[in-house]
Design a protein around this nucleic acid. Structure first.
Ligand code: NAD
Ligand code: NAD
Lengths: 231, 231
DNA sequence: TATATATAGAGAAAAGTTTCTCGATTCGCT
DNA sequence: AGCGAATCGAGAAACTTTTCTCTATATATA
């Protein structure tokens, strides 16, 4: 059950739990469209390779309640996770940097199902300004702060090259934007009231290549069979 | 200092450390090109908002050694992290799904600096097969397993729609691919010897919208001042 | 209706990660 | 050369997250 701090939103959710909630959500949406009505932590755990107790604890953070021997209503879970993550209401967002990655994000309609609607793009390249990308207008970067204020935009997405990221972030802060999703591999300096999340695109890659390199090493070591190399 | 298990690569690195190493790397590469020769954990910690002790412990995993009062050689750190992550050798990779996201990845030359070279793309769409995207040839999906074996490809990237992801993964496994970077929001079923990393693109978004939703709630609560709403 | 069983939920224990503390080392300065 | 300050490195302590254990409850079955 929840405690007082929970219901006031004062306790912070564990990062690992927050990382898993979108995975549950995805999975549960699939179950839902497959017509499944109830689901147990045991089954979720099996399907997602997670410990059932952990699943139960994670889901408890959303305030959902289940029935012994039965499990949870799938629709309850979906709704509660949506509420918890703020995906039941759409955030309008501005994107800066209408390049390769920016265009891919602009053309991803599924973000709407995750509470995100990119309403306009901003760029400095005169060749891009004025054009439409996936139906979204590309506007001059300089107009971002004014428009953001006027439209009450709270979320900004940065997909410009690293060298331009800080400047863009400053524009966003100036426009009253409160949260930034940053795809550029740099640490942004912003006032502490602004929430920044860096997309750690290299993390997965690091994990993969580290594992591959280790595997390869083991194979080589097997070939050498018993020779220990110092330094 | 290292213990025996470490030097044999038997201890597994903490996930949080692995997540931070690419961030250090990025930062250190910048220092390097700015001409900085030595750096201390204290400074790194300040610049990246991390505890200096944690930085020291993280870096120790790569086997680097520093000098008291001075710090580490930047070039040492860069080289050791590269080695540790396997970014000093380039992995050739195949990408399946030459759509919006796939094209963005194909057009990102910086992956080479992180040990990754995407050498070809694969797709089912006849309109795409045969074309070049950012200089990379798009080939029919069916040819993936054969080519992967012939070229000894060990890494695969999946950027197809969720419904097609499992099929593509099966093709990759069939082609002897050992590690998969999966951008489709589904859990893949593969033999346990194959390493899969799912790009958790929604995690950052979840963190942001959750925080925004909470902020908004607090603002609304302030307006209501004292009224507690049940459900 | 009684019994067996699967599962939620709560709390305890274990494992993992971060932060603190302290001694050793190096460098710059007097 | 000696002294003080900065920093590394190692181990301990504090904190967080995961896993285990137990109890209560709902359902199905005999
Ligand atoms: N493409 C990928 O696969 C990928 C992968 C990982 C990280 N990233 C990061 O994402 C960011 C974008 O990558 P990309 O491949 O889309 O680059 P890109 O060069 O294709 O696009 C960058 C866009 O930003 C615009 N731009 C440059 N300076 C600007 C400024 N000051 N204000 C506004 N717009 C500006 C450019 O005109 C261009 O349209 C980079 O920081 C990159 O490191 C990209
Ligand atoms: N675009 C984004 O910003 C974004 C963000 C998050 C996640 N994703 C995920 O990345 C994946 C790709 O997204 P996208 O926007 O590039 O989609 P897209 O529709 O633009 O591209 C998908 C590509 O895959 C190809 N394809 C379809 N079935 C195939 C098959 N069986 N074998 C080979 N190729 C096949 C299509 O022809 C197309 O070229 C999706 O799973 C999506 O959920 C994308």
């Amino acid at each position: 059950m929840e405690n007082a701090a929970d219901s006031k939103g004062l306790t912070t959710i564990p990062e690992p739990t927050l990382r898993r909630l979108p995975i549950y959500y995805q999975y549960l949406r699939n179950l839902e469209s497959a017509g499944k009505k109830v689901i147990s932590c045991t089954t979720i755990g099996n399907d997602l390779s997670l410990d059932p107790t952990q699943v139960r604890k994670d889901l408890a953070h959303t305030g959902v309640e289940g029935k012994p021997k039965v499990g949870y209503m799938v629709s309850d879970l979906v709704r509660k996770i949506e509420e918890f993550l703020g995906w039941n209401k759409i955030n309008a967002a501005f994107l800066a940097g209408a390049g390769n990655l920016g265009s891919a994000l602009l053309g991803y309609p599924q973000f709407r199902e995750h509470g995100l609607s990119i309403v306009a793009a901003f760029d400095r390249d005169p060749a891009k300004v004025g054009s439409l990308i996936h139906g979204k207008r590309v506007l001059p970067l300089e107009t971002l702060p004014g428009l953001a204020r006027r439209m009450g935009i709270r979320l900004g997405i940065i997909t410009v090259p690293p060298a331009a990221a800080q400047e863009v972030a400053d524009f966003m802060v100036q426009g009253g934007i409160q949260a930034i999703w940053n795809f550029a591999p740099v640490m942004l300096k912003v006032p502490s009231s602004i929430v920044v999340r860096n997309e750690e695109l290299y993390y997965s890659l690091a994990a993969l290549s580290h594992t591959l390199a280790k595997k390869l090493n083991v194979e080589i070591k097997k070939g050498e069979e018993g020779y220990a190399s110092s330094n």
